[in-house]
């Protein structure tokens, strides 16, 4: 039986990797994917705690996090597409000035 801390350790490692990716990468879509990694890490720790405590509140929280992630994916990618149309690049450094 794996102890709870192993699942939480996995979640922490995933979160840190996602955080590093969001900071380091310049491609906006890869940054978005690293944000999804971080959300998944949090989901994993929710489910691990739900399993440990024995009721389903953690899993319901994961359900709603997935809903929010799906909504964020749709709107975020639409914004990235709009960014691409105006600046012709998906790099985050292409849109860091206020003037076009």
């Amino acid at each position: 039986m794996t102890p709870l801390s192993f699942y939480l350790a996995l979640s922490a490692i995933m979160f840190v990797i996602g955080c590093v990716g969001a900071i380091v990468r310049r491609n906006a879509i890869v940054v978005f994917m690293c944000i999804e990694l971080m959300l998944n890490a949090v989901n994993l720790s929710f489910v691990a705690f739900s399993h440990s405590v024995g009721n389903l509140d953690g899993q319901i929280a994961v359900f709603f996090v997935m809903v929010v992630a799906a909504a964020e994916a749709a709107v975020g990618l639409a914004i990235i597409l709009g960014l691409f149309r105006t600046t012709k690049s998906v790099e985050t450094s292409a849109a860091n000035e206020m003037r076009l």
Partner: peptide
């Protein structure tokens, strides 16, 4: 999970 997370980054 860890290897593919590293792959994403």
């Amino acid at each position: 999970v860890v290897v593919s997370a590293l792959g994403v980054v």
